[in-house]
Design a protein around this nucleic acid. Structure first.
Lengths: 332, 332
DNA sequence: TTGTACGCGTTATCAT
DNA sequence: ATGATAACGCGTACAA
């Protein structure tokens, strides 16, 4: 059941150490010997025992993906599937594995994280916790444990990769302004999330840049869900004067807003226009197809892994990366 | 940096072995000693080094989730997020971790699996490969490597957990029959998937049971996607006589079918009725809300883990579990 | 009931 | 350039 270094050594007529050197690309091995060893390794399909190697190197070659459950139920779009795809590919390319750390309660989270960290099961973590005040971050910081956040975090010591939410929102709202709208409302996400804050900021910037007034009543907080978007839209439709366009900070909320508008008997996009954020698959299939903002999710995942590995292997300093987004203009 | 068994032993005034025995619930330890040791363990938050333990026990305490990429892009519904949630909880409760094995090409899959298995990185696999003829299954069988399939597989040696797709489809179609429909068509999934076959079988059973004729033209193959459902529906709408109801084997296809019906100027559910399968979140928000079939996804994930662990730890025989589904009656 | 000693498969240090 | 040999931290016969 499985060859060991010793087996390979014997078959190649060398010592264990030499095989190990070959495996780890150490310089001091005669080329012909190196080749002979590789030959055997390939022939028998030898793979080093992960645990043994891990015990000796004090590295598990495993990264962990932390997702507080509240987050994952929030997104009905393929955010996590795509993020994970970007991450796994990047992991495998660097010889790492990716393990999951999902939890629904903070308490379960504490226990799991403690176990993960102090059993040396992972070399680093990627934290996909949208809440800015998640206690997890300060804790990891204090432990000095390597991690990268998906989504920005104010503390300068944390590495993160984020989409340019501010610019994306600005683009969306500027698009509405170009189309002649002046009474533009927004439905935000929960304001303890960085993405929600930033998308609101982009909305503000766009209005300010074009010299449009900022009406506080036109800013309604949603929760990134369809139902939340619907409720927020109902509130907006009750205002005088009624906004002619709405920037919803997520496509799910945009869908809810569309529904509310239709329920109120309004033509879309005739009497009111809605744009979203995320570019979920259904966005293109709505009536009318939704104009929205697309983030490079796969790249974000891959980049997070890259930053984390640099941190783990070379003790790299914290890095903050913001990736550009793209306005997808459709029917609305 | 982390305590070792030796440290705990010294602090508790016993030997390494005793601490180990306490940790692993071995019987022969005096209660008072046991308590004293636990005391120390709790106080310092000791966790055994995963790699060291793994090396000694020849068990990694890690399970792998295998997802050929083609599958994960197929589902825009939260199938995988929910499945994963069920799995992780079940894993943690049993002291396991869950690691991901995603790949896009069969070649990448082969390499990854080889690495995973022969490095002893995982004790078992959960295979979420929908294709019946996936070469992965025979290979694992041949290697005698423990695994459980999500979705049934014909080989009697494979353990699986599946939703009762046949019954679900039958319920959906019987519902249409009860509503008075006699010309009922179906849009199937790709026929190399068990779920697609089974849902078609359920459709057939329902018609047969009610003595309705089986018109081959009323069976059109889709691909589980919205676009595929739309194309299939267009084909169905060209038939004479036109079906008055359609059972789509997935909600995504049902959405496409609804779209095609509307594009053809048909009233839904007036002139044509559509029911789906999966109960994706949008199903409830469609106009009209979609009648569909719901599977216990979280339970399936948890059960898969349970079966796998029994197989890994106690060499349990292959088990085949089919979970009941539920008809969700809505507007259509 | 408790402790000693060896083995798990690898890396790394030190001779040669 | 190569080969012994000592860790790495834990489980477990075996001895006491």
């Amino acid at each position: 059941m499985g060859y060991t270094l010793e087996d390979i050594a014997r078959m190649a007529g060398v010592s264990r150490s030499t095989v190990s050197r070959v495996l780890n690309n150490h310089p001091n091995v005669r080329p012909e010997v190196r080749e002979r060893v590789w030959e055997v390794i390939r022939r028998v399909g030898y793979q080093p025992h992960a645990a043994a190697r891990s015990l000796a190197t004090r590295r598990s070659q495993v990264l962990g993906l932390v997702i507080p459950e509240a987050v994952s139920t929030l997104f009905t779009d393929p955010f996590f599937p795509e993020l994970i795809r970007g991450m796994t590919d990047a992991c495998y390319a660097r010889g790492y594995l990716l393990t999951l750390a999902l939890f629904q309660s903070p308490e379960q989270g504490r226990r799991l994280l403690h176990r993960l960290l102090s059993s040396h099961a992972v070399d680093g973590l990627i934290v996909a916790s949208a809440r800015l005040n998640d206690p997890l971050i300060p804790r990891l910081l204090e432990d000095g444990f390597p991690f990268v956040s998906i989504g920005r975090h104010p503390d300068p010591r944390v590495s993160f990769v984020d989409a340019d939410n501010v610019a994306g929102a600005r683009m969306a709202v500027e698009y509405l302004i170009r189309r002649g709208h002046t009474r533009i409302a927004t439905i935000t996400g929960p304001m303890d999330m960085a993405a929600a804050q930033d998308r609101l900021e982009g909305y503000r910037q766009a209005l300010r840049a074009r010299g449009l007034p900022l009406d506080r009543r036109y800013i309604v907080e949603g929760d990134f869900t369809q139902e939340g978007g619907r409720a927020a839209m109902q509130q907006l439709l009750g205002l005088q004067p009624r906004p002619t366009a709405v920037f919803a900070a997520s496509d799910a909320m945009a869908m809810g807003a569309l529904k509310a508008a239709r329920e109120a008997g309004l033509r879309v996009p005739g009497e009111v226009t809605v744009v979203g954020f995320d570019d979920i698959p259904q966005a293109a299939y709505l009536e009318p197809p939704l104009t929205t903002v697309r983030q490079p999710i796969v790249r974000m995942g891959a980049l997070a892994v890259q930053l984390l590995v640099e941190q783990v292997e070379r003790g790299a300093q914290p890095q903050r990366v913001v990736l550009p987004v793209e306005l997808v203009v459709r029917g609305t």
